[in-house]
Design a protein around this nucleic acid. Sequence first.
DNA 1: GTTCCACGCGTTTTT
DNA 2: CGCGTGGAAC
Length: 764
Amino acid sequence: MIEKIFKSLNDPQKEAVSYDDGSMLVLAGAGSGKTKVLTTRIVWLISSGKVNIGSILAVTFTNKASKEMLLRISSLVPYNLRGMWIGTFHGLCNRMLRMHHKDAALPESFQILDVQDQLSSIKRLMKTKNIDTEIIIPKDVQRFINSAKEQGLRAKDIDDSEGFNRKYIDLYDAYDDQCQREGVVDFGELLLRSLELLQRNNELRFHYQDRFKHILIDEFQDTNALQYAWIKLLSNKDPNVFAVGDDDQSIYGFRGADVSNMEKFRKEFKVKNIIRLEQNYRSYGYILDSANALIKNNNDRLGKNLWTDSGMGDQIKVVEALDDSFEANWLVDEISSLIRSNVCPSEIAILYRSNAQSRILEHQINKRGISYRVYGGFRFYDRAEIKHALAYLRLIENSNDDTAFLRIVNFPPRKIGVKSVEILQQIASLHGCSLYESINYAEGKLSKNIKFFYDLIEKTRLDSVALPLANMVDLVIKNSGLLEYYASERDGSERLENLKELVTAASGFLSDEQIDSTIPSDFGIASEQDQILNSKNSNILEEDLKAELNLSPLTKFLTHTSLESGESQAEVGKEAIQLMTVHSAKGLEYDVIFITGLEEGLFPHENSLTEMDGLEEERRLMYVAITRAKKQLYFSFAQMRKLYGQYRYHKKSRFIEEIPNENLKWVLSAQQNLSSSSDVSLNYVINQKKQTLHTENFYSNTISSSLSKNSSLYKIGKTVHHNKFGNGVILNFEGSGSDARVEVKFENNGTKWLALSIAKLDIV
DNA sequence: GTTCCACGCGTTTTT
DNA sequence: CGCGTGGAAC
């Protein structure tokens, strides 16, 4: 089996798969068979007979990626793969913390806070400390905490010699205490806690270092400092770490990912030579050439040039639209004709830089009755009704979870108001207990309603404890009153459906677990347990296994709801065209790709221009977008676009200019817009636009102000002088006519928005 | 305790 | 322009 797959690989792929001399860095270009290499390597290791399944650790960034890998491997290997650690960083750290929860100082059933929970936890903390949230913004505190954790820093580790961050640091510290008290961890905490556990506990560290002889990491360019440190700690003196990544596809710098980890890895893990996967099996020549030409404009690349032997294909079709609605309209026209010519709708994707752009596209698509699906956006488990139901389950599981308590104590409304909660908070801090427990100490100080709530939770816990998971969820939805509440709500039917869906998810989850744990291990090789018991550290391993098996289905399910998007529920609409941001398109591929809104200020995004490495990250983003296309690629941009309620004018994106003209085929200019639309009902709009064209004068990327004769001189990047604020650089502008405003970053006076009709700005 | 309106804000996001 | 948050009125 493995020989046959191995033969189907190209030379660099073979070299990577069979590499056997320490750590390896594989530079895998877009569409170069990265996942194939990773999975084949795992199969190769297992089939060699020298590597135990249990000594493999494989890390990915998304659940989707790890599931896909697991699926591919299990289809190629007749063994039970349960002993292999494969998953996301967060999933694996969670696994480790559950197993060693005592050493990690956590309750076994600790709950995981998502971003929303984390924010409300921070707000609550700030309230108890009487901190003005107008002066210190909770979201800023959240960002501060998360970025500190991403760098592996606790509050006490943060250098504050300049004294700027004292308040943030104190809040970070208090927040950690609060989480600890409540038995909850946030996403960053999963990793940091796991890292600290391994640092602190020598026995455990040696055990895992000894166990994981082979570590494989996908999307290495997306690792942050904390994840790097975790990998480093887990790999022993003789590491076999197999890192796969593509520096050109690093697009998550803004959330702490650090491409320089690749170079760091090469040095610190003594990588002898880097393997480059440069043959692309996805896209036609014009598409690939364009991607290569674009990315050449970036500095500091590890370097790589993709090639294909599947022919040039079609040029990139470029569309210039008068405005965003013409753009959307043209796209939908083109998509309709593609579908008529038998392109499968699900093979068509429209990409955009920011979510706000999807609205107008959806509007036009809807109008034509084409079915579509918007990728990303709201997670199933983020819906309010789902979070409510889950909060009941969480409180049943862990009565210390104050976040869960506060979410549901008065939902559905049961006449428990702020006052009662405040009293509980006082009692709780007096006794150093949770809000839920504090009810026991209240002794008649409170209304009966609270006692009813307490009894409700207790009764539900008792009644549900022996039930299968799905029945338990069902019972909670009924007992809590959620069912009744949404049934009586005017537009509660969709929410009811979602709650039903939650029960379905719970029952599906349970059966998945059963299938997973009953995979027969009678394939003639040692079972997982046998393999593990042969290990030197069998005592710890036995504990591992026991601990994992002992976790209640509810704990497992709640973890699942925090760590997974619930995307699989929304797997409907196979025949629909796909809409998504460029970010969420990473890792995906489609026959036809439309990259829309290719305008200066939008893509590259204006905010990126003032950030370190910002433009280069935007260019990598564009590179990712281009390389999603298999057969056909379209670019579109609009001269003017409605943003935040007003029109803004943009010139076409520099990224279009960076692609050789011979790769492009201009299929529509703005002038042609006015006659090209097939939509008759648009006529009056067209006429209005024509009028606008006559009365307004657009300059691309230039301010048109009737009050300022030399307006075309005010360009982004120009230095200007203001009598009061001194010299500054123009960062941005918006509006036109007497509304025109410019954003100026002054050398000594910060960044300000100034109305051109009022402020006097001289070009320096 | 609930409801409603005003205000402010608006890149990308997985876990 | 459209949404979510929060404070004030009922």
